[in-house]
Computed example of a mutant assay.
Amino acid sequence: MNRPVTEIVCSDDPAILETPMLKLYYSPGACAMASHIALEEAGADYEAVKIDLKKGEQKTPEYLAINPAGVTPALVTDEGVLTDNLVIMGYVAQTHPEAKLADTDSAFRFGQMQAFNAFLGSSLHPAIGRALFSKPPLEGEAKDQALENALVKYRLVEDHLFKGPWAMGEAYTVADGYLSVFSRWGRQAGFLDTGRFPKLNAHLDRVQQRDAVKRVLEQEGIEAV
């Protein structure tokens, strides 16, 4: 479970005094929330460190020493640093099998989940990122085309990749937290309407009702949408 960075514990119990093995660097509401959700769902012993993108904290020498790419998330483990949601979520699922955040007994089904997550990270994320977060902001025809390209990706998830009631079927996995990040962005931007995307909207509602996700939202200082 998450221990705040500023928490001071007075105890003779070594288990309590032990420094958390994992440290997650995240930015509130950004894609790193998927890794944050995975750790909270797993009941992992971790410390969450906020990186303020607007202040440029991801470009400071201190953070670049952790992740030279200057992006979040980054997960510091006792073996080194892992980056990218796909990798971090897979690591969390495999190191906390009791949480059942992935089918770690089947290499094929684990691969299926990773393929789903890879599509989100390599296809949906850049498409919606271009439509919503380009600097300078897109305008006119360029903006319309970027949004249409993103909606094509959402449609592929809605109609083909999403199994229901959870992303991979009957069981909740780390893929659900990841998908919820991008559904959240779409709903906030006002184009993920329930008429066109009923499955994604119902899924987002279902994810946001989970206790672990509620805790992450509270920790990151953001609200459900």
Rank of each mutant, 00 (worst) to 15 (best):
N67I: 04
L138I: 04
P4Y: 02
M1R: 09
R206Q: 03
T6W: 05
G177E: 00
R215N: 00
T19V: 13
Q58L: 02
E57A: 02
E148P: 12
L86T: 12
N85V: 11
A189G: 03
A15T: 11
S180D: 14
L179N: 08
T104Y: 03
W166L: 01
V87T: 02
A131L: 08
D105N: 15
V92S: 08
F133K: 12
A32E: 12
F182I: 12
G43H: 05
E98D: 14
G195Y: 08
Q94R: 09
G90H: 12
L200V: 01
M1P: 05
A44P: 01
G121L: 12
Q114H: 07
I222Y: 04
A34K: 07
H96N: 07
A99C: 08
N85D: 10
A44V: 06
D52E: 04
E18L: 15
G111P: 09
P73W: 12
A30H: 14
L120W: 08
S180Y: 14
V174Y: 08
G111Q: 15
P165N: 05
F197C: 06
A44Y: 03
S123E: 13
F162K: 07
C10Q: 14
S27V: 01
K214S: 00
D211H: 11
A115P: 01
A115H: 11
V152D: 09
P97I: 07
